[in-house]
Simulated assay, not measured.
Amino acid sequence: MAQSTAVFSIQGIDSEEDLQEIDNTLSELDGVMGVNVDQGSGDAEIKYDEDVLAEERVKITVRELGYTVK
């Protein structure tokens, strides 16, 4: 297992519900070991197993939910 951390910013988080949606969806991805998103800044830190999941898949999943990833 090769643990990595993806750090990026998510724009468009307007509520606690948005935050929960992102957290729940990312937590369900195979290989994700931890999700930490700050609602105020949109800063995200996602711990994942790079043998199972690519960082780009994490970002694509956030975009598919309707948010902008920077």
Rank of each mutant, 00 (worst) to 15 (best):
M33C: 08
R63D: 10
V62F: 03
Q20N: 12
L26S: 00
R57L: 06
A2G: 10
V35Y: 06
S41C: 09
E50C: 07
E50G: 03
Y67W: 09
V35A: 10
S9A: 13
E45D: 12
K59G: 05
E16G: 08
Q3F: 09
D38N: 15
G34K: 11
G12N: 12
V52L: 13
Q20F: 01
V37Q: 04
G12E: 03
G34I: 07
D43Q: 13
K47C: 09
Q3N: 11
E64F: 08
L26K: 08
E55F: 00
Q11L: 14
S27T: 14
Q3S: 13
S4V: 04
N36H: 13
Q3I: 15
I10Q: 04
I46L: 08
T5S: 12
S27Y: 06
V69S: 03
E45K: 10
D51A: 05
L26A: 11
A6Q: 03
V52I: 14
I46V: 15
E16W: 11
R57E: 08
M33Q: 13
N24K: 10
E55H: 05
D43R: 09
E50D: 13
T68S: 15
E28I: 00
E45H: 13
L53M: 10
V58T: 05
S15Y: 02
G40M: 05
G34C: 06
G42W: 02
L19G: 01
D38H: 11
A54D: 15
I46Y: 00
Q20Y: 10
A6T: 05
G42V: 05
T61V: 12
G42S: 04
D43P: 08
E17Q: 14
D14T: 10
A44F: 00
L26N: 02
D30A: 14
D43V: 13
Q11W: 13
A44N: 02
V52F: 04
G42C: 07
Q3E: 13
V35R: 10
S41G: 10
E55Q: 14
N36C: 11
V62N: 00
V69R: 01
V52E: 05
S9K: 14
M1W: 06
L29S: 04
V37N: 01
D38R: 11
E21I: 01
L53W: 09
S27N: 14
E56Q: 13
R57M: 06
D18F: 06
I22A: 09
E28P: 00
G42I: 02
A44C: 08
D43T: 12
S15D: 02
Q20S: 13
S27F: 08
V35P: 08
S27P: 01
V58D: 02
G66T: 12
K70G: 13
A6G: 10
G34L: 09
D18G: 02
V62R: 04
E16V: 09
R57V: 05
M33G: 03
A44T: 02
G31F: 03
Y48R: 04
F8R: 07
F8W: 09
K47P: 02
I46C: 00
T68K: 02
